[in-house]
Simulated assay, not measured.
Amino acid sequence: MVAPSAPGKVTGRAPAIKLWLTTATTSLGNHSDRLNAINIFPVPDGDTGTNLYSTVAAAAAALQDENHDDLGAYLSVAATAAMENARGNSGTLVAVILAALAESLEGVDRLTAQTLALALDRATVKAWAALSEPVAGTMLSVLDSTATTVRSVAAGLDESGQSLKIALEDMVSAAVEAVRETESQLQALQAAHVVDSGGVGLLLLLDALRAAVLGEELDPDLLAGLSGYNVDHPHIHQVGDPVEGYEVMCSIDLSALDAATLRYELDRAGDSVIMSAVKTLDEEAQLYRWRVHVHVADKELALAAIDKVGTAENLIISDLCTHESA
């Protein structure tokens, strides 16, 4: 566990962001096996913990030599690294969330209850929009509930450190409850008696933010009582038929129109389509760098659709059953 640098001191400044992602990387690494074990949605491929750890670790590593007062600029570096190295549905969504936080906090040098609320609201909009077919009972629901709670709480608070403490603590409490509710929101989770793996991963990320900003430790009892989360529970994703198909991920430079065309073709070819802009390359020409994710039965269909509109970079093709590169 990464110990906070200033125990008990509330700081919403940039150094807390570096500590947040470093702490989150450690936390996700510690919990990756159990996150993999309960990963059954959207496909039971048992890699959510691994993907989240890899993605957040890339974000944290990108900040090691960075020094910004602007929270948005600082987070933008982390978000770009996360997006370019995003793995799986969960990793890609976390990268989208980091990018949205960066956009909202541009020009902000200190986190407050109010700026946190605005950032979480933006993250919710961006994350839901990134998926072609967003589903409740997932990381999205946890993010949505969290943002709603913080928005409501922040409306009655001032911009003090104590108010930020209240908002962060309520944020984590809301996330815990939202994670518990995922079990009843998705039939696959209810049948397996587990909560959503991606939702738990987001909860760990949010608790790491709370700990880093408040100068506190991670909550050791955060996940107590979550369905399927005891270490003696089985690896749920190993029950049932093997997953067939491929996960295709890449980065690509496209205009907004070409990106819409690619999303349409990928929706036809497979499912679990996620597309989000990494950064703006040419605002006037509406040219952006995108991170693309899709599950397909035939990887050649996805590759053909990608090749039709541009050149794929950071291309990763994995067998959903074995996780080996295809």
Score class of each variant (00 low, 15 high):
Met171Val: 04
Ala208Val: 00
Leu186Arg: 08
Ser160Ile: 12
Lys165Thr: 15
Gly199Arg: 00
Leu206Ile: 10
Gln187Ser: 11
Gln162Trp: 11
Leu206Ser: 03
Glu177Thr: 15
Leu206Phe: 08
His193Ala: 06
Leu168Phe: 01
Thr182Met: 03
Leu205Arg: 03
Ala208Met: 02
Glu159Thr: 15
Glu159Met: 12
Gly156Ser: 13
Arg210Thr: 00
Glu181Tyr: 07
Val176Tyr: 10
Val176Thr: 13
Ala192Glu: 11
Val194Ile: 13
Asp158Cys: 04
Ala175Lys: 08
Val195Gly: 00
Asp207His: 01
Ser197Arg: 04
Asp158Ile: 07
Asp170Lys: 14
Gln162Asn: 15
Ile166Asp: 15
Leu168Val: 10
Ser173Ala: 14
Gly199Lys: 01
Gly156Leu: 06
Asp207Asn: 03
His193Val: 10
Val194Thr: 10
Leu202Arg: 02
Arg180Asp: 05
Arg210Trp: 01
Leu209His: 01
Ser163Glu: 05
Gln187Trp: 05
Ala191Glu: 14
Asp158Gln: 09
Gly199Ile: 01
Leu209Asn: 01
Gln187Leu: 11
Ala167His: 05
Ser197Asp: 09
Val194Pro: 04
Gly199Asp: 00
Leu186Ile: 13
Ala174Pro: 03
Val179Ala: 07
Asp170Pro: 13
Ala175Val: 11
Ser160Leu: 07
Asp158Gly: 12
Val176Leu: 10
Glu183Trp: 07
Lys165Leu: 12
Val195Met: 04
Leu205Val: 15
Ala192Thr: 08
Leu164Arg: 05
Ser197Asn: 06
Gly198Pro: 11
Ser197Lys: 04
Leu157Ser: 13
Gln162Thr: 15
Val200Thr: 09
Asp158Trp: 05
Asp158Val: 06
Asp158Phe: 10
Gln187His: 09
Ser184Tyr: 09
Leu157Gly: 12
Arg210Gly: 00
Val200Asp: 07
Asp158Asn: 12
Asp207Ser: 01
Val172Trp: 01
Ala175Asp: 04
Leu204Val: 14
Thr182Val: 02
Asp207Met: 02
Ser163Arg: 13
Ser173Leu: 11
Gln187Gly: 06
Gly156Pro: 03
Leu206Tyr: 05
Lys165His: 14
Arg210Leu: 00
Leu205Asn: 02
His193Ser: 12
Leu164Trp: 11
Ala174Trp: 06
Gly198Lys: 06
Gln190Thr: 12
Glu181Cys: 07
Ser173Val: 10
Ala178Ser: 09
Glu169His: 12
Asp158Ser: 13
Leu204Phe: 02
Gln162Phe: 10
Ala192Ser: 11
Ser173Thr: 15
Glu183Lys: 15
Glu181Thr: 09
Asp170Glu: 15
Leu186Ala: 11
Met171Tyr: 03
Gln185Phe: 03
Lys165Asn: 15
Ala208Asn: 01
Ile166Cys: 13
Gly201Asp: 05
Gln162Ser: 14
Ser173Asn: 11
Leu189Ile: 07
Leu206Arg: 03
Leu209Asp: 00
Val179Phe: 07
Leu164Lys: 03
Ala188Trp: 05
Asp207Thr: 01
Ala191Tyr: 03
Leu204Gly: 02
Leu205Ala: 01
Asp207Arg: 01
Gly198Arg: 08
